[in-house]
């Protein structure tokens, strides 16, 4: 309970920072901080494997995200971003409303929330076995989706007019 009480305000602050920062790199770094703090929460809750995976995957992913955010945005976008802020705030709140409503409803109805009884720790071998036997279709679907995204990204990144000289591309 104590780690939750300490960490959740920090996570919230970092998450708010991630959407509030005007410069994209700052926002991405705040996102990295948020995800790292969530990883710390997992560790504190005793889910060591998922915590370390969260850290390994997302901190690395954020590094790549920053590169993209730099490549996509123009310098000088910040002023425009700050100008847009009141409108973005309204839109953001409107988008959050349904989620909040569902959460409030669940919390209010109360009866269907049960504290999960403490279970013996799942070993990594068991986790892997479950993942690649009973949940194999989901894993495969995700793999196909990610491959499609990768191919799509490569298509977008290619310059359209250079078609014959493929070998010189990176």
């Amino acid at each position: 309970m104590i780690p939750l009480l300490i960490l959740s305000p920090l996570i919230l602050l970092a998450a708010i920072g991630a959407v509030w920062m005007a410069r994209p790199v700052h926002a991405a770094l705040m996102l990295a901080l948020t995800l790292a703090l969530v990883a710390v929460l997992y560790l504190a809750l005793g889910a060591e494997f998922i915590g370390l995976v969260q850290f390994a995957v997302y901190v690395g992913a954020v590094a790549v995200l920053i590169v993209f955010s730099l490549l996509i945005t123009r310098p000088g976008d910040e002023a425009e971003e700050i100008e847009r802020r009141p409108r973005s705030l309204v839109t953001g709140l409107l988008c959050t409303l349904p989620v909040m409503a569902v959460l409030a409803y669940t919390a209010a109805s109360g009866s269907n929330i049960k504290l999960i009884p403490w279970q013996p720790k799942l070993s990594i071998a068991e986790l892997g076995e479950v993942l690649f036997t009973s949940h194999a279709p989901a894993v495969l679907a995700l793999a196909v989706l990610l491959t499609a995204v990768l191919i799509g990204a490569a298509l977008f990144a290619r310059e359209p007019d250079k078609t014959q000289d493929d070998s010189s591309e990176k």
Binding site: F49, L52, F55, V59, I124
Partner: peptide
């Protein structure tokens, strides 16, 4: 128990700090 995973998890921080 998860030493190798820990090694790679903290190692991914290096990229971020270089950036």
């Amino acid at each position: 128990e998860l030493g190798l995973l820990f090694f790679f998890a903290v190692g991914s921080l290096t990229e971020l700090s270089v950036f």
